[in-house]
Computed example of a mutant assay.
Amino acid sequence: MIARVRLVTATCALAAALAACATPQAPRAARPATPTPTATPSGPPTLAPGPEGLTPVFRSAARTPAKTVALTFDADMTADQGARAASGERFDNPELIAALRGLKVPATVFMTGRWAEEYPAQARDIGRDPLFEVANHSYSHYAFTGDCYGLPRLPEARMREDVERAYTAFRRAGVPDPMPYFRFPGGCYDRTALKALTSAGVTAVQWDVVSGDAFATDADAVARQVLDQVRPGSVVVMHCTRSAAPATERAVRTIVPELRRQGYRFVKVSELIGAAGEHH
């Protein structure tokens, strides 16, 4: 288990949110009833609004005999980290993307708008590759609740704007069809956040498998943690951030062949949501 990173300045906010995904601690979240999956002929499958019309939340597919699993990768960068990128810190991980391509693994990349602005060519390249789908991880990587692992907090009035700003950044980078899926920074949300995003038309996507890749240097330990948790229909949270998750590529090279040996098939989040609709 990775040691907790002590928050000493505001620049540690991204590290704190990554650490949140590195431990099996449950996200701080409201727990609405599971909404009904739906699909439209003109777009990707989404979930119907939850109780009282709140933004729906998807964590994993129903436990069916179909052994499918979705690997998801958060491409994190906060709005105020430009100076760190300019000084040489790498928030991208092209080697990981190349590994996924080499292994022919479909994946969903939850990208911040700020990441897409910093690495527009990579964002465009990922977004135009049919192996991947790009989803929204906010523009700023600021928290949508209070007390979210030290992240700066967005006011309620700016929550929808932050999500829409990320989609604008994706379009400017050349991502043709970003998905209507949203992952809360740090995995933190509450009823207020769900209500604020209702009109954005997104499905919030959480996870049921914590990889522990944030700040990990032992790729085998990350792989074991994933392999011990995966079940049919699982959503695995990992990271596409070289400086903060340096062992992820190596872990993936162990995880993928082992899960395939066990009979699993890798899918994007959209396929899991679509399959959930068929079984509802």
Rank of each mutant, 00 (worst) to 15 (best):
A3I: 09
L7Q: 12
V8M: 12
T9H: 14
A19S: 14
A20M: 09
A22G: 15
T23Y: 07
A26G: 06
P27I: 03
P32E: 05
T38W: 06
T40H: 15
P41Y: 01
P44T: 15
A48I: 09
A48C: 03
G50S: 04
P51L: 13
P51M: 06
V57T: 05
R59I: 02
T64W: 01
T64Q: 14
V69A: 02
A70H: 02
L71F: 10
F73T: 00
A75P: 06
D76Y: 00
D80V: 09
A83Y: 13
N93Q: 08
N93P: 00
P94H: 01
G102N: 11
K104Q: 14
K104T: 14
V105Y: 04
A107N: 07
T108F: 05
R114S: 15
W115H: 14
W115V: 00
E117H: 01
G127S: 08
D129M: 04
L131V: 06
V134K: 00
V134C: 05
H137C: 11
Y139T: 00
Y139R: 13
H141C: 10
G146Y: 08
D147N: 14
Y149V: 09
L151Y: 04
P152Q: 00
R153K: 12
R153I: 13
E156I: 08
R160V: 07
R160K: 15
E161G: 09
Y167I: 09
R172W: 10
G174E: 12
G174S: 09
G174I: 11
P178Q: 06
P178N: 05
M179T: 15
Y181S: 08
R183M: 08
C188F: 06
L194K: 03
K195T: 12
A196T: 09
T198P: 02
T203M: 02
T203V: 09
A204D: 06
W207I: 03
V210E: 12
S211E: 06
F215I: 02
T217K: 11
D218T: 10
D218G: 05
A219V: 01
D220E: 13
A221E: 13
V222N: 11
D228V: 05
Q229K: 11
P232T: 06
S234W: 10
C240H: 00
A244H: 05
A245Q: 05
E249P: 00
A251H: 05
R253F: 11
I255G: 12
L259Y: 13
R261P: 01
Y264R: 03
V267D: 03
S270I: 04
G277P: 11
